[in-house]
Structures are given as structure tokens and as C-alpha cells.
Design a protein around this nucleic acid. Structure first.
Lengths: 405, 405
DNA sequence: TCGCCTTTTGCAATCGATTGCAATTTGCGA
DNA sequence: TCGCAAATTGCAATCGATTGCAAAAGGCGA
């Protein structure tokens, strides 16, 4: 009895036989779901019947076929082209080991059947993985963090840079408390590396993760004893620029909005107060409120100030979102920006220029940042000892909200 | 000579031998990169040396090891726990076929070594795939489309819904021209299904893709002869609501901003003009401009109107972004909103309420939409014939920008 | 026609898991 | 103490590709 794995193929083979693992019984089952375009295979099947003994059933094939009905695979293409899978594999990845004519035939068949090499199998076998996880943590009970336009800008920039580098982006939302477990994204071979946007209060946990030498890059502030790779803007400089500008406009009693518990905000505040000090102004603790990056909080905080008789002549917010919300609140109480209060935000989100009044703000180097993060990460993956990325330059963009004229 | 595949393991086995494929020579190579936590394995290795004959080198292992230095795998855990990989596999996925005691030991070892089942191998073998591609097309030469806040809201909502359903999200940016190739995301086994945000002008191409029965759900407008699954808001109703509201506020010469080439916008415009007609008003073609969803275009278009002496008393924009940019332009020319011109936007993006003046707008059911898209897609994946999702309800949110008071 | 050197192609092991079936162990009643 | 059923565990095939090595085919000069 002939080996059921032996399947006759026309042409090419002198003895009419090429040893090719038959697709076995599964065909019968898969045929039900087969798309119209697959007639060609069926014809081929017909041809086979005359010669070969029906192969014995395979165990798991059926279940799998039920899930991915009729998905083509390399063996199908190989059979149609009358070659082995080795050749198909090589042809489709452009190896010069394959005859041009053969390659063209294979490519033609593949495209005709919408065949694309199975990435899972490919990654598994070749050990390559071109997916990067971009993790955006949120604090429990306030999912809204994701609404911050800065995040969107950053995610968009990352998506573009990764696409350019021919990587794919897995967007992961994760509760901040579970941060220590991000390592599993890499441990599971799911992604090649991780970009984390927002270090929050998790400095120590990040250090722990870094100690496992996972490919990880964080957007945030440079901190002492930082063992993870971190990219960010010059927060202290940004804070100083904002402070100096407001002082230069004649402000003396400047309010600050932002959660100094976050390293980035803390640095911005530090730069800001340093500027004040240089001009002999001490920052009144009553003029700062530690609020998260959420518009409603900014509004509430601003209203509270005013309702308690605290009316600053300037306001520096740790993000544009906060600044805009604060401006709204000021207006609610009849205070005009920039006539009564000058305001400076942080980030220079897309919309800052279209706001009314257009918003003076410290521009974060989003594009540069995205590139730096991706490049640092790819260096890590390539074993190249990543040059520790410096803080990226920051710049004050002066618009209407901070000019009395 | 003993089979090199036979490796001695202490305990459990009466004869001191369990047939377990050894990790072979790769160990030597991988050991270099091994993380500190792996001492336990080395000890185990030491033990082995005494008994077993060095296994012959494996070909590809080295290369792979170089890429994923020291990644644990199931065989390692099995060896450490003194069981087979079958048992480890079952234990880690909570099968009740495993003794509790054994499971606990295995779990303990796995967590100690940060071991996580390799998702690629798992997906490949078991045919499961819990990744969904969310595709956001952009038009060539204007990447900025991604900056539209509506998109961000939708992506955020999708991310949350998918996470909730225990799926992962692959965010794909793609040039609109390449849209016909999105099928490869599924063909390659990369993702289980596709959610496409923005049907743009690609109705026919989407139909073609749908004919291949790929799991695809699109956010957009319901169109005649639509063979792909599509979820969207009631655009005609939305347009009508906006029109009626502006008419009710006394407007008679209402400008329209938005690219009617896009089905959604076209429907909004149709509803809008229908409302006008009902009140005996015919929409003056001079009062509409087909511009893309980009702020600068809205500004330019608005300025052009005014500079050509066309000053409407109302304005309906196909998105909040356009509305806000238009308001800025009006202000530039000394026109106040809502004193001189009433404005209604579309989407109700997060920021609409914080804008000045706060923006009257037609709310898109983003959360509902995200849920509907995901559920429709999962139905498709589960072979459940997805109930064709109806158009989702739309609602006018009246704020300052459209009220003269 | 023969031998040797390129070009092409195929074989079979491998990536790291899952799972049907068979084998082993354990428990328990007779 | 024996036998049978239930509870555990292991074997080996399999998912769909990649790739080192060896074999086959083709070209060419003698």
C-alpha cells in the first residue's frame, strides 16, 4: 500500500510523484466553508483521488478548521505551484535561492488566493517579533485620563514612528496598580518591547521591572537612581520658562495647578518656583493645588480659589487641558483672560492654538519624544547599548492668553 | 550509549529517569544571558551533568536564544517541577485534570521565574487569537487626520471595550489607498478581526473585502448596497436636529462646513437641508464648502466667506473640530459667537463643553458605538450571524454657541 | 558522453506550546 | 489481597511556518 502522504502532482516530477504531506482529511471538512475562489484546489483534489489512498483523519485539524474556515496555508500554495513549502517560503520572502520564474508563479498564486504568510507561525519559528506594546495606564476610578489630548498626540506620533520603522503597535490600557505585571507582555512573547506613557508614582516598580532587563522605555521625568530607560522633556526648564514669562508680564501672584506627586509635574513646579525665587518672589502655598490631569478638577480648584477670595494675577497649569478648564472657570466668575489673569499651559496640544484666547504654553517635544522612545527601544532590542536619551528640548510658545495687550 | 534525550530528574521517577527532551546545548549559550533569578536552573544543570551524555547541538536554537536571551519556556518549568509539559500546560490554564498540589507547585515556580505561556505558540497551536486590529486610515499628504479628537474618543472607547471583553487591540495606521489590503491582517493570522474607523470614499472597496467574508466592522454611514457590517450614528437625524435648532434660533442664512464626499457628512448635510426645506428655506450652495476634517481648512474657508462679503447668521459644521476652528476665524474677523453668528458642531468631543463659547453640538454615541462595533465583530467571529446593528441614537446638546441670550 | 560547478529545490528538524488517548497511580470495596 | 473505577500524568502528533544541509538539475568544456 502506498504511503498516504504521497500525493501525485502533474508536471515537474518524472515519476509523477512528489513527496508532499497531504492536507489529509481536513479537506473534506474545510471544503464546506471554502470560498468560491478555491475551485482550483478542488480540481486538484479531484486529480488526486485517482491515485492516492485516502489519508487517515487528523485529530485537531477539524477544530482548527472550524475556527479559521478555509484559510490558505503555505502547503496549499506549494501544492498549487507544484513545489515544496521550502520554495514557497523562500520565494515569498524574496530569497535569491529561488528561480525567478518559480517565484513569479508562486507570487501570482499567492496573491490570487489572498495568501499571506501566517505571522504567528513565522514569528514563532524565526524568533522575530515586530510588535511593540504601548501601555497607557489609568488610575482606578478615573478612566478619563485617556481623554487628555497630550496622550492622543503622543499615541499618534508613536503610531506613525513605529509604522515607519515597520513595527506594529499594540495599544494596552492598564490599571496603574497592575503596572508591575507589564513584563508579561514580553515574557509571553506577545511583544518585543514596551513603551510606557506615564511613569506616575511608580518609579520604584519600574526600577524593579528594569532590573529584569526587559526592553522597556518610559515617558516621564529623569529621576535619581533611575535604572529604567526614560525619555522626557526638560520639565524644569519648561517650568522656569513659564515662570519667567509670567513674571515678565508683571504677574506677582501666580497660581499653580497640577499634581506634584507626579515627577514631571514636580519638576515643572520646581523650575517655576526657582524662577520666582530668582526674582525675589516666594510662591505662596495657598496658590497651588495638587489636582490630577482632569478638566473638572481644574475647574473646581479654580472656582474654589476665587470663591475664597484668592484671585491670582497669573496661572500656570501643568497641562493645557488644565489651563483651558481653568480659563473656563475664571470666565464663569467674570474674570477675563488675559485682561484679569494671565495663563500659561503645558504641552502645546494641537488645540491650544485654536482656543480662545489662544493659549500660551510650553511645548512638549512630542514628535521628537516618540522618535527617541522608539529608537531607544529598538537599540535595546538590537543589543546596542542604548545611549541614555537626554531630556528633550522644551520651548515656550507665547500666544494671547498671557499677553495683556 | 544512553539516548541523549534522556535526562535524569530527582524524585517522582522510580528509576530516576523520565523521558524528557533535553534543552540541549543551547543552555551553554543561553546561560551567558541568563538573568540572576535563574540560578535554580543552573543548579539543576549541574546535577544533570553527572548522569547524562551531552546532547548534540541544535541548529537554530542559538540564533533564537540570542534574540530572546534566557526566556523561560514550558519545558524549563516542567523540568523544575519534575513533571511533563502536558501537566504544566494544563496546570497553568486551570484544567481540573491536574492535582491541586501539583498545580500549586507549578504555579509557584512559574511566578517565581516570571514565566508566562508563550502566546504565539499558544495561538498557533490552539487556533485562538484574541487580538483585534483597529484601523485608522489617513489620506496621503495629511497625516493630521489623526488629530481629530473624535478619533481619540473612539479609540479610547474601543480600547476599553476590547479590554473588558478580554481582547487586545492592535492599532494600525494605514494610508487610505492601501485599504484594500487590510484583509491581510486577518489572512496572516495576525488578528482575529478588523474594526475600521472611517469608511471615507471606500464604499466599493469595502464591499469587495466583505465579499471575502473577513470579520470586519466599519464605523460609518449605512449605505444602499452595503455588504459589510457598518455601525454609525443617525447622521440624517443629527443634521436635521442641527438645522431645526438653528432655524428655531432665528437663523435663515446658515453656512455648512464639511466634505460631502464622505457618506457620513453627506447624510448630515441631507438631514440639515431637509430641515431647512421644511421651513421653506433653500440652502444656498454658496454657503457650503467641502473641506476635510482639518482645522486649518475650516479657518480658511470661513475667512474666505467673510472676505467675500458672505456673512451667514448661523453655521453648522460636520465636526466639532471644524466648528471650533470656524469660531476662531469668525472672531478673527470681529464677529462674535453667539452674538453675530450661531454655531453648531458635530460629535460632542470631550472638549466641546470647555470651549469658549461652549459648543452646541450633535452628540455621537461613541461609547455605544464602540460597544456595538466590538459586539458585532465578536458575533461574526463566533459564527453568530451578527444582528445588523441599527443606526445609533443621536442627540442635540445645546450650549452657549447657539443661543443669543 | 563524462565530470564538475552552479542553480534550484526538497527533506526534515525545529520554534513553544496544546490535547486526544493511553498508561500509571491511587482509592476503595469485597 | 485483588480488581476495578477514578484521578493524574505522560506520549506524541500537531499548529504553520523557517532553514541548514543534501540532493537534483542544468550548463559547459574536454
Amino acid at each position: 500500500m502506498r504511503d498516504p502522504g504521497l500525493v501525485p502532482i502533474q508536471g515537474q516530477d518524472p515519476c509523477g510523484l512528489i513527496h508532499l504531506p497531504a492536507r489529509k482529511q481536513a479537506f473534506a471538512c474545510r471544503a464546506q466553508h471554502r470560498r468560491t475562489c478555491c475551485t482550483l484546489i478542488r480540481d486538484n483534489e479531484e486529480l488526486d483521488k485517482g491515485h492516492s489512498v485516502p489519508a487517515k483523519p487528523t485529530r485537531n485539524r477539524k477544530a482548527s478548521a472550524a475556527e479559521h474556515p478555509g484559510r490558505m496555508q503555505m502547503a496549499d500554495i506549494a501544492r498549487l505551484a507544484g513545489v515544496s513549502t521550502s520554495t514557497v517560503s523562500r520565494a515569498l520572502k524574496g530569497s535569491k535561492l529561488v528561480n525567478d520564474e518559480t517565484r513569479q508563479r508562486i507570487e501570482q498564486i499567492a496573491s490570487q488566493f489572498h495568501y499571506t504568510v501566517n505571522q504567528l507561525a513565522m514569528s514563532l519559528r524565526s524568533g522575530t517579533n515586530r510588535t511593540i506594546a504601548v501601555v497607557v495606564p489609568y488610575e482606578k476610578d478615573r478612566r478619563q485620563n485617556f481623554t487628555d489630548p497630550f496622550l492622543h498626540g503622543m499615541i499618534g506620533a508613536l503610531a506613525d514612528v513605529l509604522t515607519e520603522r515597520d513595527y506594529e503597535m499594540l495599544l494596552v490600557r492598564m490599571e496603574a496598580g497592575q503596572l508591575p505585571s507589564i513584563g508579561s507582555l514580553v515574557d509571553a512573547g506577545r511583544t518585543a518591547g514596551i513603551i510606557l506613557i506615564g511613569q506616575w508614582h511608580h518609579h520604584d516598580q519600574l526600577n524593579t521591572i528594569a532590573d529584569r532587563h526587559l526592553p522597556l522605555v518610559v515617558w516621564g521625568a529623569q529621576l535619581p537612581q533611575q535604572r529604567y530607560h526614560c525619555v522626557g522633556g526638560q520639565n524644569t526648564v519648561g517650568g522656569r520658562l513659564a515662570g519667567e514669562h509670567l513674571l515678565g508680564q508683571g504677574c506677582r501672584s501666580i497660581a499653580f495647578l497640577g499634581d506634584r506627586d507626579l515627577p514631571e509635574v514636580e519638576q515643572r513646579y520646581r523650575g517655576f518656583t526657582a524662577a520666582l525665587r530668582k526674582h525675589g518672589v516666594k510662591h505662596d502655598p495657598a496658590l497651588r493645588k495638587d489636582i490630577p490631569f482632569l478638566a473638572p478638577d481644574a475647574r473646581r480648584a479654580t472656582l474654589e480659589w476665587i470663591d475664597h477670595g484668592v484671585v491670582p494675577d497669573g496661572l500656570f497649569a501643568a497641562s493645557d487641558l488644565l489651563a483651558m478648564a481653568a480659563i473656563g472657570a475664571l470666565r464663569e466668575r467674570g474674570l477675563d483672560v488675559p485682561k484679569d489673569v494671565l495663563v500659561v499651559g503645558y504641552d502645546d496640544v494641537d488645540f491650544a492654538a485654536h482656543f480662545h484666547p489662544s493659549l500660551t504654553t510650553v511645548r512638549q517635544p512630542v514628535q521628537l519624544g516618540a522618535e527617541a522612545m522608539v529608537d531607544t527601544l529598538l537599540d535595546l532590542l538590537g543589543q546596542t547599548p542604548a545611549a541614555h536619551a537626554p531630556e528633550l528640548p522644551t520651548q515656550l510658545i507665547v500666544r494671547e492668553s498671557s499677553q495683556r495687550a
